[in-house]
Design a protein around this nucleic acid. Sequence first.
DNA 1: CAGATTTGACCCAG
DNA 2: CTGGGTCAAATCTG
Length: 295
Amino acid sequence: MACDILVENILSSYQSAMKLLDCMAMLENGDPSQMRVSNVFGLPNSIEGSPTSEGSGLNSKDHKCNKRKKLPKSKWIEQVRVRTVCEGQLDDGYNWRKYGQKDILGATHPRAYYRCTHRKTQGCLAMKQVQRAHDDPSIFEVIYRGKHSCMQERLKQDRENLIVPKKEDQDSPIHSQETTITNETSLKIENQELVAKEDHFPSFSFNSTPIESENFETRFFPEASNFIGTQYPPLEFLSPATSDSYFSMPQCPANDLGKIISNPTPLTSFSFGDLDISVEQIDFSSQFFEAIDYF
DNA sequence: CAGATTTGACCCAG
DNA sequence: CTGGGTCAAATCTG
């Protein structure tokens, strides 16, 4: 019984992999209209860059009395609205550690506070807040603050240097972006830059779901990501060296998706061009299949 | 056991 | 004084 399910998953996985390859080929043919999918998993185009208040040499350890740090109200804050079925899919390729949760007045859902996992080890000051939209619980509003100064960011930038930037929407300091897969269970991203970013602010890559979607995106649509002005984290982010939280699906209700992800079917890997595609790292949830079917 | 999460308390800006 | 942001001890998890 379980074997049957496993076999079905394996077969479906291969089918999906083949569809992904087809999709990739389509993208490489240079159809920009298809490239929008690269941001499907909720990547903010870039994030605030320069140091925030906490970035200005402020060390929380040295300022314990300042429990509340000043927020730069008009700078280096980016809000991203991500529609997803569960919060766990919001992961953006970086490792975050939750340090607090707060019920917000007038909000039906609490706001969660995250810091970069490498805050201690590398002094990374990136932070983010995640809160469900009160009008639509399927939408998570994510506010990013601070710039990643950890290795994650460095690795990402190294990766970026290997790609010839194609973009032009990156130049716009203020823009709104919405990327949607018409699939009902797909992720809907509404990137809304709240404020103008610093011009030279290094682009900041945010992927939602690291394993399922991030892999999908970075491994299959690297060029596409670049096309729409969204950078992507380096593949190194997939390294086991990264935090386990990378795979966590904190508030996913039934968490079936999480189970599927956490128990990747041990399939084989293959190459496509210079890309090594590990099927086992792809999210094979039903939603994923639906998204693929869209293509 | 180390690292992540939870949660109540604390701090401070408005 | 209130509400939002953070701390840190307790708890959980792998």
